[in-house]
Amino acid sequence: MKILVPVKRVVDYNVKIRVKADGTGVETQNVKMSMNPFDEIAVEQAIRLKEAGLAEEIIAVSLGVTQSQETIRTALAMGADRGILVETDEALEPLGVAKCLQKIAEKEGPGLILMGKQAIDDDANQTPQMLSALLGWAQATYVSKLEIADGKAKVKREIDGGLENLEIALPAVLSVDLRLNEPRYASLPNIMKAKKKPIDTMSPADLGVDVSPRLVTLKVTEPPKRAGGVKVESVAELVDKLRNEAKVI
C-alpha cells in the first residue's frame, strides 16, 4: 500500500504573527516557516505504518510556492520516500488544494491518505473532508487511534462529547488529531539522505485544476486587544473581587 501525506508550509507554531500594516494579510516575509504541526503527526503515522509492514511507500505532497520544497524535505528526512510539489504563487483555498490532491491520488492510487486536521494559518479544517468527497472515499476526521487490518481501518475520532468509533473501508482519507502520536525528529544522517530523495514538480494547470480563489479577502485586521487587569495578593482577595466586583460567582 502507498500512503499519500499532504504537508503544508505555514508560519512556525512559535512565531507571534504580525498583521501587515496595510491590512492585506499577515507578514510572512523573514518569518520562520515550518511544517504544519498536524501534518507532522500524519507523516509520523505513515512512517509507523511502513515500519509495521503495512505500507511500502510514503509520498509527501505539498502545494504552494517554491519554498514548499523545504516542507517536503522535512517529511523526507522524517522517513517519507519521495515528494511531489504542486508549485503555484496563487493564494490557495481548500477546495483548489483538494482538487489537486484528488488528481494526484487518482494517479498514484494510495490505499490511505493521512493529513493534518487543520492548518494553523487559515484554520479552515476543510481539505481532508473535501478530498474524501471528491474521491468518493471514506472519511474519518480527528483521528486519535488507528488500526489497520484486512483492508479496513478501525479509528477513534475525537469529537466534542468524547470519542467516536468508526470502521471504514480503504482507500480512505483520514485527518489526524493531536493524540495520535508524537512525531519524531529527523536525525542528521536522515536529513542528509533526504537531499537525495526525488521531488517531482508540477503546476495546478498540469493537473488540469483551476485553483483561482473563490473568496476575496477584503482586509485582515488585528483583533481587539484585551486589557490586562490587576494582580491580587491573596485567594481571599481573588474571591472577593470575583464575587463583589465582577459579580461572576
Binding site: 479544517n125 481539505t127 473535501m130 476526521t141 480527528y142
Partner: peptide, 23 residues
C-alpha cells in the same frame, strides 16, 4: 463550527462546487 458541523460541511461545499467559509 463544532466537530459535528466541521466534519460534514466541506462535503456539502464540494457537492455544490463552492468554497466553505469556516467558523
Amino acid at each position: 463550527a463544532t466537530t459535528f458541523g466541521k466534519n460534514f460541511m466541506p462535503r456539502v461545499a464540494v457537492a455544490l462546487d463552492v468554497a466553505q467559509i469556516s467558523e
